[in-house]
């Protein structure tokens, strides 16, 4: 049981870091505060590039791994004790 937990923890640490990194690699959308709380209408034109779309895919994959690790750890903590 301990081995599984350690593996999950390592997975979680790595995926957390990679996830943060990938998210920062994205180009920011939206503009500032006034946009957030009903400022001017700003519609961004143009689709995302191929690189961006691939990045999206990787990010989703990492996010899934991240979520699985968290759920796994949660289940372990519940049934271990």
């Amino acid at each position: 049981m301990d081995a599984v937990r350690i593996v999950l923890q390592v997975l979680l640490v790595i995926s957390s870091m990679v996830l943060t990194l990938f998210i920062l690699l994205h180009k920011g959308k939206g503009g500032g505060l006034s946009d957030m709380f009903g400022g001017g209408m700003s519609t961004s034109l143009g689709g995302s590039s191929v690189a961006e779309r691939n990045l999206d895919r990787f990010t989703v994959a990492i996010a899934v791994i991240w979520a699985v690790a968290i759920v796994g750890l949660g289940l372990l903590a519940r049934f271990a004790s």
Partner: peptide, 9 residues
């Protein structure tokens, strides 16, 4: 780490 990644997400 998890919470930071969560915020990023």
């Amino acid at each position: 780490l998890t919470m930071t990644a969560g915020t990023g997400l």
